[in-house]
Design a protein around this nucleic acid. Structure first.
Lengths: 156, 156
DNA sequence: CCGCAACAGTTGATGTGTCAACTATATCAT
DNA sequence: ATGATATAGTTGACACATCAACTGTTGCGG
């Protein structure tokens, strides 16, 4: 019927979906989407970060960042300033409102994660982390040796 | 710095991303995308299934199915026939070409999953499945009791 | 049998993601 | 210095996802 590999595969996907759905709802309560929040978060952690660096952190295409930033700028959460020495680049900064909402949502998200993930006991948590770590490494190796990555991914 | 919950959270997301990226590349080799493939797969498993039922299996909105089906119909992989007793509904069937590509890609995907997930040894696999199962259950309960689900999700 | 709620499916608006092609600036080797 | 190459960011075209609003059918309670 369904072998172990398929089972593991499906479990991973479904677990992710549930987590992601919870995130989406949480962010929605604050008028944000996951990508918008994660842009704010990264900018708050590294003020002045460039769009390119951001796209690498988010594991998505640069063009995607361009448009998300545009939206956040329109909402008044983010601003772009020209890079002082590189004429191509720009630097991203949070506005005061952006910083405020980012802190607020970040706390809520952390609390939510504690609430939802703390229900598994510590022992399970630890082995889960160990095992996922191993799997994650193996998968990444496997992918890396496959081909030069086109551009792929689609995080958060 | 980073507590256990955050760690687990990030690991789950990143692991999923790597898996998903591999999938995307695999399907791409056959001129398919993940959503298109999964529509074909479900129709092959349940010929005559309706769009509504499909959207529930895929955990996505009906309107999404409408458009994916439209695309697959245009490619000649799928056809729609009116439901014999319900004037609102339609039945979905694979064309011979659709059935052929579906089988081909399905085998390739299974083989790929075996290759990539078999590198973790059986013991790890087993505990991983157990622990993920537990986590998955808890998360789902948590989500379910939260609110009447709007429509959410975004599988595969 | 009639009116109305539920359901199947479509459409439009919008956000997110990809890729490919482009502009403009930087960098590096000669 | 100049010319090839790389990098930063934008844009256009398209796929996929949501939600909200709509059309038609079904089915059910009066």
């Amino acid at each position: 019927m369904m072998n172990e590999m398929e089972h593991l595969y499906n479990l991973l996907k479904e677990t992710f979906i549930v987590i992601d759905d919870g995130d989406r709802r949480l962010f929605h309560r604050f008028g944000l989407t996951p990508p918008r929040f994660y842009v704010l978060l990264h900018v708050s952690e590294e003020p002045g970060i460039s769009s390119s660096d951001l796209s690498q952190k988010l594991l998505c295409d640069k063009s995607n960042v361009t448009r998300i930033v545009k939206g956040l700028e329109a909402t008044g959460y983010l601003e772009r300033r020209p890079h002082e020495s590189d004429g191509r680049a720009q630097r991203l900064y949070l506005t005061p409102q952006g910083a405020a909402i980012c802190n607020e949502v970040h706390s809520a998200h952390t609390a939510y994660n504690i609430a939802r993930l703390n229900s598994v006991d510590t022992a399970v948590q630890t082995t889960l982390i160990e095992n996922l770590n191993r799997l994650h490494h193996l998968l990444q190796e496997e992918l890396a040796q496959q081909t030069p990555p086109p551009n792929g991914h689609h995080l958060v």
